[in-house]
């Protein structure tokens, strides 16, 4: 459906790359999340796919047709890609209905279709309002309805929830992706929040400094990250240095690097394979969890999270081999 081959983009004539040699493939109907920190190239990548930027090298194919290459550039209005912007970008001087109608003005059943998509996002009754009369979440749903109205081949959502507060965000996220999945459209969802990505995406792409470093299904990314960077994106991890390995009497392949997730540590659990004694030197109450700063017998300090607020000062801490993450680097 979407084919990307060696895509590169630099904004300073090759001194640095916003996007470097990125290649991947999306199947029809996939919902894929594009995850990375700010400045990792997520937005550049989707703007290239949308046709709002021109690549310096590489090829983009949509449904087999080359839309962007070194010799060829299909402008955004001819790509059949829908884009939901971070700040919604509704047309302020048009009613909701006019906003939605805008992209389908040449179609026969345009009025019916506009009403249909507004109903789909639950705003059918507000079609004569103006964007400034809506809440942020409602505006976001109109933006989605507007993008879906022309039946795009590909739908891109660029950080769609970043302007919303946490409560609304989770609710709207689930609502919106129910709609997206119901329409069966192929979608790319840009986010810096891995929780959002894990919650809704079939597949996740990780970008770091303009390079695609891992693409996999959500569950696989969590259990088999291919770098400590990816592992740390999905929760606190502790790198198992050689010193820590010997402290826990757990020698690992010296060719590889290793890490373990914070939640895989167990306190005072005799069944753990690798255990050591530790002294709690600082407790930080975080509400749901308590963070403990531990000093191991061997002298290293590590911090772990626990649900038990009343841990004794001297404890045993350990983990199991199966939870160790191994990376080839």
């Amino acid at each position: 459906m979407l084919d990307i081959e060696s895509l590169s983009k630099s904004f300073d004539k090759g001194k640095s790359f916003a996007l470097k040699n990125v290649s991947f493939h999306l199947k029809e109907g996939d919902v894929c999340a594009l995850v990375g920190e700010s400045g990792s190239g997520k937005t550049t990548l989707v703007r290239l796919i949308a046709g709002l930027e021109t690549p310096d090298a590489g090829v983009i194919r949509l449904n087999g047709e080359v839309v962007s290459s070194l010799n060829n550039f299909v402008p955004p209005e001819k790509r059949k890609v829908g884009l939901v912007f971070q700040d919604y970008a509704l047309f302020p001087h048009m009613t909701l209905f006019k906003n939605v109608l805008y992209g389908i003005s040449k179609e026969k059943n345009k009025n019916q279709r506009a009403q249909e998509v507004l109903n789909l996002v639950g705003l059918g009754g507000m079609k004569d309002r103006y964007p400034h009369q809506l809440s942020g979440g409602q505006q976001q749903r109109v933006a989605l309805a507007r993008a879906l109205a022309p039946n795009p081949a590909l739908l891109i959502l660029d950080e769609p929830f970043s302007n919303l507060d946490a409560m609304l965000r989770m609710q709207l996220r689930n609502e919106i992706f129910e709609i997206v999945k119901a329409t069966g459209v192929t979608a790319i969802f840009v986010t810096h929040d891995t929780q959002d990505a894990l919650a809704v995406a079939d597949e996740i792409l990780i970008l770091q400094r303009g390079e695609l470093i891992q693409k996999d299904e959500a569950a696989n990314l969590y259990t088999k990250p291919n770098s400590i960077y990816v592992a740390s994106l999905f929760g606190n991890t502790i790198q198992l240095s050689h010193e820590l390995q010997s402290a826990f009497k757990c020698p690992l392949n010296p060719e590889c690097s290793h890490a373990i997730r914070n939640e895989n540590f167990a306190i005072n659990n005799e069944e753990c394979e690798h255990v050591t004694h530790a002294q709690v030197i600082k407790r930080t109450f975080l509400g749901h969890d308590t963070q403990l700063l531990l000093k191991l017998d061997s002298g290293q300090k590590i911090s772990v999270l626990t649900k038990d607020r009343n841990v004794a000062d001297l404890i045993k801490i350990g983990f199991n081999s199966k939870d160790v993450l191994e990376f080839n680097s």
């Binding site: 829908g82 884009l83 302020p92």
Partner: peptide, 27 residues
């Protein structure tokens, strides 16, 4: 006028000139 406004008009299949007259000119 945020760039996203004319950009989203383009994304909805409307070319630059029509975008100007329908979206940017009124704004």
């Amino acid at each position: 006028v945020s760039n996203a406004i004319p950009d989203s008009s383009n994304m909805l299949g409307v070319g630059n000139l029509r975008t100007f007259f329908k979206i940017e000119f009124p704004l």
